[in-house]
């Protein structure tokens, strides 16, 4: 399996740093952002396969707004929502906006990783479909 790129967005510095380190240790191309704004800057510069996004961040842009913006910039990027409490309504809203799944904090990496993989596969599928569609389109004019 190809290695994939991940962006973790969380205002909790200890959490962010540790999760990024652990993912990197598993040879995943991982970056961290401590706010929605930082995340958007990164995403504008380069694409990510999967974004792990904390829904509730105090001050500035909250998770749902960030999700909306990410989907605008990179529609194919899959987003996994992280939530500190069972805010079902927010999660539902997130799912409607195209999030891949949502996960409740605290979560073990062993549980998070499979979801990330699924998200990546889905994204890959999409990519492939997009690519083949483009190829078909190109072939049409050939």
């Amino acid at each position: 399996m190809d290695t994939f790129s991940v962006l973790v967005v969380d205002d909790e510095k200890d959490f962010l740093e540790t999760l990024v380190s652990r993912l990197k240790k598993r040879k995943i191309d991982t970056h961290g952002a401590k706010s929605g704004e930082d995340a958007l800057k990164l995403i504008k510069n380069r694409p990510f396969d999967v974004v792990i996004l904390d829904i509730k961040m105090p001050g500035g842009m909250d998770g749902i707004e960030a999700l909306r913006a990410i989907k605008k910039i990179q529609p194919l990027t899959e987003v996994i929502l992280l939530t500190g409490h069972a805010s079902v309504e927010t999660s539902i809203e997130g799912m409607k906006l195209g999030a891949f799944d949502y996960v409740l904090k605290p979560v073990k990496l062993e549980e998070l990783l499979p979801k990330m993989l699924q998200a990546f596969e889905k994204k890959n599928n999409h990519d492939q479909k997009v690519r083949s569609a483009k190829i078909r389109e190109t072939l049409k004019y050939w």
Binding site: E12, D14, F15, T18, R22, G84, K105, P106, K108
Partner: peptide, 11 residues
């Protein structure tokens, strides 16, 4: 509580 727990679990 969940946020600190999440940090502990990651640590």
């Amino acid at each position: 509580i969940n946020n600190p727990l999440a940090v502990i679990l990651q640590k």
